[in-house]
Design a protein around this nucleic acid. Sequence first.
DNA 1: CCAGATGCAAGAGCACTGCTCTCGTTTGTG
DNA 2: CACAAACGAGAGCAGTGCTCTTGCATCTGG
Lengths: 230, 230
Amino acid sequence: MSSTAHGARARARAEVTTAIKDTARGQLAQEGAAKLSLRAVARELGMASSALYRYFPSRDDLLTALIIDAYDALGEAAEAAHDAATGAGPVLRWVRVCEAVRDWALAHPHEYALIYGSPVPGYAAPQDTVPAASRVGRVFIGIARAALREAELAEPALPAELRDEAARMAADVAPDLPPAVVAPLVAAWAQLFGLISFELFGHFHRVVEDRAAMFRHAADRLARGVGLTV
Amino acid sequence: MSSTAHGARARARAEVTTAIKDTARGQLAQEGAAKLSLRAVARELGMASSALYRYFPSRDDLLTALIIDAYDALGEAAEAAHDAATGAGPVLRWVRVCEAVRDWALAHPHEYALIYGSPVPGYAAPQDTVPAASRVGRVFIGIARAALREAELAEPALPAELRDEAARMAADVAPDLPPAVVAPLVAAWAQLFGLISFELFGHFHRVVEDRAAMFRHAADRLARGVGLTV
DNA sequence: CCAGATGCAAGAGCACTGCTCTCGTTTGTG
DNA sequence: CACAAACGAGAGCAGTGCTCTTGCATCTGG
């Protein structure tokens, strides 16, 4: 490893880097992404603000680092929930993963807003966020895959006008799954985050009270819409 | 009206106010909410930045004014689409309104991000945004109401654990609709914006290509999930 | 009809931001 | 051991939101 080969230098660099990310994450949790200030981070760390630019070339680069970490943390939460639900039926596993995603979002609202709210830096999401961002999606695909293997998946009806697009998506994303499953799966994926975003961003204020129950029910219906049974 | 009673003074004030909002909206469309700068707006209008504070006490107040306008514009687009679809069945009317919402969002991405992305100012949405924000929702409620009147609404099944919450929501939001309709309606409302947000914020990049078809299909399924028929 | 109150625009200024450049110092390596 | 690379600190630039004061235009009560 170059980290050990180059010795103490690289080690110190890695430590400072994570220290910066940690205090930045702290400020993010308190004030939100808009208020995150490089100078404030440097101040809290007792270093000059200019020194920080040795580690992150710009504020947006710090933010994208935090974005990747957030995607990874959320993906890990989803995977953990899935692992904890082995043995259960596919619908229940699906619902459990959905609830884990929601729980993580409620526990880390600003980090969630960072990745599923309006894109803050420039406009285009950097390419290196892609693998981390796809982790949650892969969990859902995995559930559908297992259900298919265990014959617990009833292929939903798919209108003719969507057949080509569904085949394209399936080829790109999960070639072993029937297109008629991939299409509603992707839609369900987006709709799931719609529910969470509405709750988190206050659109359910004075509308929905028992949000956990509403969410569980919606997640259940999404699972069945994908074709999961039992 | 006090605007005519107080004469030219109030008239000039209203003109300057809308001029500020208009150029601010222009900057918003180009650079996004994060980059919106009071000084830049003042510069473009040829006035001192301090003069702007006579019209909006703070940057966040300007933003909330733009938020209300955006909610109203979106609501108007939804209502117009609904009016243009009179005579069609409830499902088709629902889909048309959904597509109108999506079209507006695609045409005004930054304004959409302002109202349905991460909340930018502080955290709590000011109370005066509520009436404007509920306009789109009212359109959907109106469709369900009309469908109920015309006997084109099949009450969906509702699990027992959701019965109380659904009754509460119905009483608050649409007392004349059956709770078993209101609950999935609210969920569909959030899921609809999940689809739009994912498309607009780039989460469908390299995943969904024919987004219009995907959206139309999802909207159709949401309509049927609410109980609309025909 | 005209004095005084009120609304308004402009400028200076404060504290803050992201970011760049330069200048010593430290540290790892040929 | 010398040299190059990495590093930290400071000054400085352009920009921001926002406040305060000053002077001018406008509306209004006597």
